[in-house]
Every structure is written in structure tokens, then in C-alpha cells.
Design a protein around this nucleic acid. Structure first.
Ligand SMILES: NC(=O)c1ccc[n+]([C@@H]2O[C@H](COP(=O)([O-])OP(=O)(O)OC[C@H]3O[C@@H](n4cnc5c(N)ncnc54)[C@H](O)[C@@H]3O)[C@@H](O)[C@H]2O)c1
Ligand SMILES: NC(=O)c1ccc[n+]([C@@H]2O[C@H](COP(=O)([O-])OP(=O)(O)OC[C@H]3O[C@@H](n4cnc5c(N)ncnc54)[C@H](O)[C@@H]3O)[C@@H](O)[C@H]2O)c1
Lengths: 217, 217
DNA sequence: GATTTATAGTGAAAAAAATCACAAAAAAAC
DNA sequence: GTTTTTTTGTGATTTTTTTCACTATAAATC
């Protein structure tokens, strides 16, 4: 079984979700491939690896496929997520409405700057960093987002680990190290831009295909 | 030459930048590997592929290395970038101070919602989408960021292509297709979270290593 | 109901990427 | 100034990932 395959499965699931809400009922491997940006063979191979099967000459039933993928991906229960750092990125994430439909809920944000604290109905509360540990332990939260300046990232990671967080998306432009006990996905938005710039400046538009790669550790 | 290698080179560059500002002068392949999350052999192999050499038993001179990488990456001139969509993500990016030191400058934002328009000193102006084309053409801007709702993304892409944009980072959770004439880097933040959730829910913390992969097309 | 056709499924082959293993060379130690 | 140590550089090898080439099968057509 292929490591990258897992990320592709998540992509398939998201694409199928979209196609489903658009009213599609059945899909062929090449449509799905197209939506996600891979080859049809790859889609079928991935499915084959995970024991997903469709109907020969009939394609795949979208709802059954989504169900199967959700099962494989363990996306049955709503995942509660906390953010540390209520600045630009943290706020953007808090305000984003698109998480819920993927079974993700941002339940709280923690900051050290008291001017950021807020407690409103309908909005995500911003609390003192000191409250993180109790909050996370009480609600058994497993996933956290780091949206603090680079300089504070390692320290925040330590707080999160102490609180029992098991998975982190880190937006600080520094590679935080995970462990057997905690997976970290380092997302570097500047790098996303730089990558594009590289291809433009060097006229490598030809080099089409999957290119970027993040790191989980 | 390896495709992923290019992204690693950008990572090396960023890490070196950081180490440099921290006062380091020279570095060994294993330090750099550590900072970026790869093996020392990989670092040397990558450098070898791009004709970068250091000093046996002496490691690499950081400033010379940065210069060489900048040369290879074509990061000599300041890159001006426009955003379309002045909402949550667009605003976060506009306010972010970390681009300039990587030679990137957000010069303007375009939106269809007049309530978002603003023209202040010191801040990035938000203008009407209709002004995009002239602005981009006049300043010969090559790079754009799409930060509009999914439903509007394809249309915005068309506007950008018409304006002459050659490279795009797209935050809408839909795969926009590039062409020989335009590179698109689709960034999906929900997927970044979902990936972490997958690893936690399935107890695959063991599966340490580089995992995530974005797409440029 | 036979034939054609489109599509899934998959072992085999190819391609791509990472790692290994070791030579070369520079610095350090003696 | 010789030996040891440390680190780079890279061809060879291994591993991983993708693609190919083909079979099986269900639907559509005749
Ligand atoms: N905004 C962007 O578009 C953008 C782009 C690329 C990368 N990033 C990275 O994302 C991270 C956040 O960026 P931002 O623009 O939102 O920054 P920001 O300065 O707007 O927000 C950071 C927040 O973290 C809080 N904070 C600082 N130290 C803390 C600590 N120890 N514990 C808890 N909270 C703390 C601050 O009070 C502030 O509210 C940074 O590492 C940045 O480099 C941001
Ligand atoms: N905010 C997040 O944390 C987050 C997370 C994941 C993905 N995204 C994606 O990023 C994109 C932007 O998200 P957001 O939260 O910033 O949305 P938002 O609704 O806050 O902002 C969207 C902006 O785009 C403008 N807009 C709409 N149609 C437009 C058009 N045709 N031309 C120009 N401008 C137009 C709107 O006026 C608005 O200002 C969305 O596709 C979203 O799915 C955002």
C-alpha cells in the first residue's frame, strides 16, 4: 500500500462530495481522475489497493463510494479542533464555514494577547493560552492548529503535546518535529507561492504534474 | 533531475535564511537535512544534481549557499503578486508581513463586493475586479492568488488568464486546471487538516515521513 | 441472443525517487 | 608530516510509485 495513495483517497472523497452535491449519481474512473488531477489507471489502482470496487462498464455509484471512503478514512465522527494563535491566519480559519461539511469543527482558539480574547455567541471563543490544557483534556480534543509566529511555535507545540494533542497542522514557517505520539503537518504558505514563482521565472510551465510535497512527522 | 528536488531546494533556501539570521555561518549536510526533514544524503544528492558543492569536511558556507540557491531559483528580483478575493484568507495574506523577506510583495487585491474596497496608505488596496486586467497588464504582474469561494474560482481564473497572469496559487477547494501557459498550485487547507485527522484516527503515527502532495498543473 | 463496446481490475514492467556504500579530500590530531 | 577523523560527492542499488498491457465483465447495440 502506497503512502501517497492515502492523500489521493482524501482527494477523491472531497471531489466526490462536490460532484454529489452537484447532482451526479455515478462516475467513471476517468472523470474522477480528471477532477483530482491524476490518471484513470491510478484511481483504479488506488481503489484496488483498498479493496474498493465498482461495476464493469458501469463505473462507481457515488454515494456508495463516498460511504466506503469515509469508512476507510475513519471520518464517521465530528472532529473537534483547537487553534493556538488568533491572528491573521487563526482568524481566517475561525471564520471559515467550510470545515463543518467535512466533519471538522473549530471549537476554540487560544492566544497570549489578552486583547484577542473574546467570548461571543455564534463565534469561536478566544481564550488565554493557560486554559488550553484543561479545555483540551476535558473535551478529549486530539487535533490542533498552530498559527503563532515562528518564534513561539516550538513552545506552543510543547503546550499542545502536554495537553494531549495528537495531530497538528502548523502554519509557522518552521519545521516542527513530531513523534510516535504526535503527527505534525507543516504547511508553509510562502513556499506555496515560491514554488509557483520558481516555475514561472524558470519558464518550466512544461513541467506539468504533481509537484508539491509537504511533510508529516 | 528530480521534480520534488526543486521544492526541497526551496526548503533548503528558507531554512538557510533562518539559520543565517540566527547567526550561523556554516552548515553541514546533516544539520540542513535535519532542519528540513530529509536525510543528509538527500541534501547532498540534491546539491550534486544542481552542481552545488561545499567543502569536504568543511560543510557549506551559508551565505554562498543561499546566493547559489537564489540564483538557481531565480529569486533575484522582487515578485509582485495580486490577490483576488478580499475575504478571510485574502485579508490574512494581505496583512502578512513575512512575504517581503522572501522577495514577494502583495501589491493589490481585487473583489466584486464594493464594501471590501479600500484605499489606504500602508495597506494593500482592494479594488474592483474590473480593474484587475489593466492593473496586471500595466505592472506586468505574473503571479496571482485566488481566494474566492469555490463557485467563483473558475471565473476568476479566466479573468486572470486574460490579464496575463502566468502562475497562480489557488485556495478554493477545487482543482483548477493550468495550461502550458499558466502554472496553478492548488492549496487545500481543509485537506491539510483531514490528512492529519486520518493519521490520528487510524493510529498511523508510525507512518512517519513525507506524506502530503499538492498539485501543480 | 450474439456481438460490439466501454470500463473495471490487476499483474508485470517501467520510471522515478531515495538510499546505500564507498571513494576522495580536507581538516584535525598526534 | 603522517595518521585519523570527518564530511562531501556520486555511481550503484534498492525501494517506491506510476504506467502499461491485457483480461474480465457488464451494458448497449444489432
Ligand atoms: N497571515 C498569513 O497569511 C501567513 C502566511 C504565511 C505564513 N504565516 C505564518 O502563520 C503564523 C501566523 O501568522 P499570522 O499572520 O496569523 O500572525 P499574527 O501575528 O497575525 O498572529 C499571531 C497570533 O499569535 C499570538 N501569539 C503569539 N505568541 C503566542 C504564544 N506563545 N501563544 C499563543 N499565542 C501567541 C499573537 O498574540 C497573535 O494573535 C506565523 O508563523 C506566520 O509566519 C502566515
Ligand atoms: N478562510 C479559510 O480559513 C479557508 C480555509 C480553507 C479554504 N478556504 C477557501 O478559500 C477561499 C476563500 O475563503 P474565505 O474564507 O476567504 O472566503 P470569504 O467568503 O471570506 O471571501 C471571499 C471573497 O471573495 C469575494 N468574491 C466572491 N466572488 C468573487 C468574484 N467573482 N470575483 C472577485 N471576488 C469575489 C467576496 O466578495 C469575498 O470578499 C474559498 O474558496 C474557501 O473555500 C478558506
Amino acid at each position: 500500500m502506497n503512502k501517497k495513495c492515502i492523500i489521493r483517497l482524501l482527494r477523491y472523497k472531497n471531489a466526490l462530495h462536490r460532484l454529489n452535491t452537484l447532482g451526479f449519481v455515478k462516475i467513471f474512473s476517468d472523470n474522477l481522475a480528471d477532477a483530482v488531477g491524476v490518471t484513470a489507471t491510478q484511481v483504479r489502482k488506488d481503489f484496488s489497493l483498498f479493496g474498493i470496487s465498482g461495476n464493469k462498464r458501469g463505473g462507481y455509484q457515488i454515494d456508495a463510494l463516498i460511504e466506503k471512503l469515509n469508512g476507510l478514512m475513519g471520518k464517521d465522527e465530528l472532529q473537534e479542533v483547537v487553534i493556538v494563535g488568533g491572528g491573521n491566519i487563526g482568524t481566517a480559519l475561525m471564520k471559515y464555514k467550510g470545515f463543518e461539511k467535512e466533519g471538522i469543527k473549530i471549537v476554540a482558539c487560544f492566544d497570549i494577547d489578552p486583547s484577542k480574547y473574546q467570548k461571543k455567541e455564534k463565534e469561536v471563543s478566544v481564550m488565554a493560552l493557560e486554559e488550553l490544557k484543561d479545555f483540551v483534556k476535558a473535551r478529549k480534543i486530539k487535533i490542533g492548529i498552530i498559527a503563532v509566529p515562528e518564534i513561539a511555535a516550538q513552545q506552543v507545540l510543547d503546550h499542545m503535546l502536554a495537553a494531549g494533542i495528537k495531530g497538528i497542522v502548523n502554519f509557522a514557517p518552521i519545521r516542527l518535529r513530531g513523534s510516535a505520539d504526535c503527527v505534525i503537518n507543516n504547511v508553509n504558505l510562502v513556499l506555496e507561492l515560491e514554488t509557483v514563482i520558481y516555475f514561472i521565472v524558470n519558464g518550466l510551465n512544461k513541467m506539468i504534474g504533481e509537484i508539491h510535497e509537504d511533510q508529516k512527522s
